[in-house]
Simulated assay, not measured.
Amino acid sequence: MSALLEVSGVSVTFDGFRAINNLSFNIGIGELRAVIGPNGAGKTTFMDIVTGKTRPDTGTVTFGERSVSLLSLSEAQIARAGVGRKFQRPTVFEDQSVTENLLMALKANRSPWRVLFWKPKVEDMARVQALAAQVGLADQLARKSGELSHGQKQWLEIGMLLAQEPRLLLVDEPAAGMTLAEREQTTAMLVDLAKTRAVVVVEHDMEFVRRLNCKVTVLHEGSVLAEGSLDHVTANPQVIDVYLGRG
Rank of each mutant, 00 (worst) to 15 (best):
M1N: 14
S2N: 11
A3M: 13
A3E: 06
E6N: 15
S11C: 11
S11N: 09
V12T: 14
T13E: 11
G16K: 08
R18D: 05
R18T: 14
N21H: 09
S24G: 11
I27E: 03
E31G: 08
L32P: 01
R33V: 13
A34D: 06
I36F: 00
N39F: 09
G40L: 02
G42E: 07
K43G: 08
D48Q: 15
I49V: 15
V50T: 02
V50K: 01
R55P: 04
R55N: 04
R55A: 10
D57L: 15
D57A: 14
G59S: 12
G59V: 07
G59M: 13
T60I: 05
F63V: 07
R66W: 08
L71E: 03
L73Y: 04
L73D: 03
I78K: 05
I78L: 14
G84E: 04
R85N: 02
Q88C: 09
F93S: 06
F93K: 01
F93L: 15
E94W: 06
T99R: 12
E100M: 13
E100S: 14
N101Q: 12
N101I: 12
L106T: 05
L106Q: 13
K107T: 05
A108V: 14
S111W: 03
R114N: 09
R114L: 11
L116Y: 05
L116R: 13
L116P: 03
K119E: 14
V122T: 13
E123I: 13
E123H: 09
D124H: 15
M125P: 02
A126F: 10
A130W: 06
A138I: 02
D139W: 11
Q140D: 14
A142F: 01
K144H: 12
G146Y: 08
L148A: 06
L148H: 04
K153E: 07
Q154C: 09
L156R: 00
M160F: 12
A163S: 15
P166A: 08
L168E: 00
L169I: 07
E173F: 10
A181S: 14
Q185D: 07
T186S: 07
A188K: 15
L190P: 00
V191A: 12
T196S: 15
V201R: 07
V202N: 05
E203L: 14
D205R: 02
E207S: 10
F208V: 00
R211Q: 11
N213S: 13
N213V: 09
K215Y: 10
V216I: 12
H220D: 09
S223K: 04
A226F: 11
E227S: 11
D231R: 09
V233R: 00
A235N: 10
Q238G: 05
I240S: 01
I240N: 11
V242D: 01
